Simulated scan of single mutants.
Amino acid sequence: MARWQPDAPGRLAAAALDLFEERGYENTTVIEIAERAGLTKSTFFRYFPDKREVLFGGGTVAGLVVEGIASAPPTTGPLDAAADALDALGRTFFTADRREFSGRRQAVLDANPELREREALKRIDITAAMVEALTLRGAPSLTARAVAALAALAWEVAYDQWIEAGNSEGFGPLARRALADVLAAGAVR
């Protein structure tokens, strides 16, 4: 693969996923990932601080969630703003062309405790970003925290359904349904 081809981060992520599946996460080096992608080690480090981060997309998802919340109409309540952000993720990030990659990625994460830990930390960061975005919209702190936690749980449920083999439903509708289910479960006494 020529070095001048576009989307170096995507190429690095695809190469890393292939190598992690073939050799295991622990047995794959940054140099091997870069070589598989047709890039250099320094190019790898231009985009990612370490090999764990190559499967986590930098701050892309958090940025999209914050943008989705911020772009909701001013009269939209906190819960609907969070739902709008999940819809936006489905339109811009969790698209049909990323479904197979995402399922494979999750299998690699599930097989490696270090990557599961990194995923948990990323989810905490994204939830905190949602709290901040909701607070900036004027939601009280407790409301922002509760809505962000509910939206994060709905996201996790929807993501698990979205990557299931044979599923063709979009992430946005799955997330909306999961959010409704989470809210209904919370109403049970």
Rank of each mutant, 00 (worst) to 15 (best):
A151H: 00
L64W: 03
R23F: 04
G77Q: 01
F44S: 06
V65L: 15
F44N: 03
A187V: 14
R11T: 15
V65H: 00
D18Q: 12
L86Q: 05
R99C: 05
P74S: 15
E35C: 09
P78D: 00
D125G: 15
R98I: 10
A129R: 01
G77H: 03
D80M: 05
R23A: 12
R176S: 13
A185N: 07
W4T: 08
N27M: 11
T95C: 09
E119S: 13
W4M: 10
P9T: 04
G138M: 13
E35N: 12
L19T: 05
I163N: 08
F101N: 12
T92D: 07
L142P: 04
D50V: 11
A149Y: 00
D181T: 09
A70S: 06
R176N: 11
F94H: 12
F93W: 07
I69Y: 02
A148V: 01
T95G: 08
Y159R: 11
A133D: 12
A178H: 03
L55W: 06
G24F: 01
G63H: 02
P173L: 08
E32C: 05
A16F: 03
E117L: 12
T92F: 00
L142F: 11
L115F: 06
Q161V: 09
T127F: 00
Q161K: 07
I31D: 10
A81S: 14
A180P: 03
R116M: 09
A8L: 06
A14G: 09
V30G: 09
L183K: 05
T143I: 10
D80L: 08
A154E: 01
T127E: 05
G57L: 05
A144D: 00
P173A: 11
R176Q: 14
G24Y: 00
V131L: 14
L19F: 03
D181C: 07
L121D: 04
P73Q: 13
L142S: 13
E53V: 14
E156W: 01
L142R: 15
L134W: 03
A178M: 10
